[in-house]
């Protein structure tokens, strides 16, 4: 049992933090790849920008540094890293009594660095180092939450936000790379490596598939791997796990809870076969997965946060 508003805030902290980490990683990969002035470098920049929802703008892809700077520090853009972290921290402030001091301090520290007037200079001095540090700090935040918060309802809402956001972000990235048949297929070795880096998947991939870079293997790994924490399948399993635990306490009559949707989504990925996915078109499969993620999000709201009072008033 916890306040609906508090659950909502914790859920969004999870989402914003995950989003910020993903954006940092995309920016980092984009900046590193474009150090080489090759054609695949531009392609990588385009993938990264398309994956964050930027319209396919050739101009931006040709100026990756400016694009990354805006992606990370532009406070006018509500989707930037700085804005996401600001929102995460604002939510944390509103539920300051619900998170441990250790967890709060991590997030507060990241936010303070991001909103420091000197942040732009630090980014210019060494953007990769800046991004690398931010990602490491975000890992520390998650570690502090894991190590110091009670693994009860609040913590589960936080992780629900993390995994739902991650499933949608990785799903979105895969859709950009494999969904659109009109787009030129990615075959270039360095582009494929960069794609894996965007999902922080290069090293785990190598251990499974060796250095054999095949688009089909990459899709399989990022979509269906059971153990890799950024595969869509792994995320959906965690979403189901947390939702099942959270839903135990709700006696909502006549409401089909989000745990049912989450179970179906998990099953869809658990029993999928990469051959069938590709035969039916990766686009259709990814589209269905993303739609179901959105449905889980809506259902979470209707069940736990924005329910109507009539259903819950004592008789």
């Amino acid at each position: 049992m916890m306040l609906a508003r508090v659950a909502d805030s914790l859920y969004w902290i999870g989402r914003y933090v995950e989003r910020a980490e993903h954006l940092c990683r995309l920016s980092d990969v984009m900046l590193t790849a474009t150090l080489d002035r090759t054609e695949s470098a531009t392609q990588i920049a385009r993938i990264a920008l398309a994956a964050v929802g930027d319209p396919d703008d050739a101009g931006k892809a040709r100026n990756p540094y400016e694009a990354a700077l805006a992606l990370v520090l532009d406070r006018e853009d509500p989707g930037s890293v700085a804005s996401s972290l600001g929102l995460a921290r604002e939510n944390a402030r509103q539920v300051r009594d619900q998170i441990t001091t250790e967890t709060w301090e991590r997030l507060n520290l990241i936010h303070l660095r991001m909103s420091d007037p000197d942040a732009a200079r630090a980014f210019a001095d060494g953007s990769q180092a800046f991004l690398h540090e931010t990602i490491a700090d975000l890992h520390l935040f998650k570690g502090a939450a894991d190590a110091t918060m009670s693994h009860g309802e609040g913590w589960r809402f936080l992780l629900l936000g993390v995994y739902l956001e991650r499933a949608q972000l990785i799903g979105g990235l895969l859709e950009v790379c494999f969904g659109d048949r009109k787009r030129r297929a990615i075959t270039d070795h360095s582009a494929l490596t960069s794609l894996l880096r965007m999902a922080c998947a290069l090293e785990p991939y190598l251990r499974v598939y060796t250095a054999d870079m095949q688009p089909r293997f990459i899709l399989e790994f990022l979509l269906l791997d059971e153990d890799f924490p950024r595969s869509v399948r792994f995320c959906t399993a965690r979403i189901e796990e947390h939702l099942t635990s959270i839903s135990r306490h709700v006696e909502a009559t006549g409401v089909s809870g989000p745990d049912r949707l989450a179970g179906r989504l998990r099953a869809r990925l658990q029993y999928a076969d990469i051959g069938e996915v590709q035969a039916g078109g990766a686009s259709a499969f990814l589209g269905a997965v993303l739609d179901e993620c959105a449905a889980v999000h809506r259902q979470v709201y209707e069940t736990f946060v924005a329910y109507t009072l009539e259903q819950r008033l004592p008789a």
């Binding site: 809402f157 306490h249 709700v250 004592p314």
Partner: peptide
Amino acid sequence: VVHDNMVYMRTTTGLR
């Protein structure tokens, strides 16, 4: 939420 002169808070598991 005040209902029937009782005060409740909105929680994830309903009113308390």
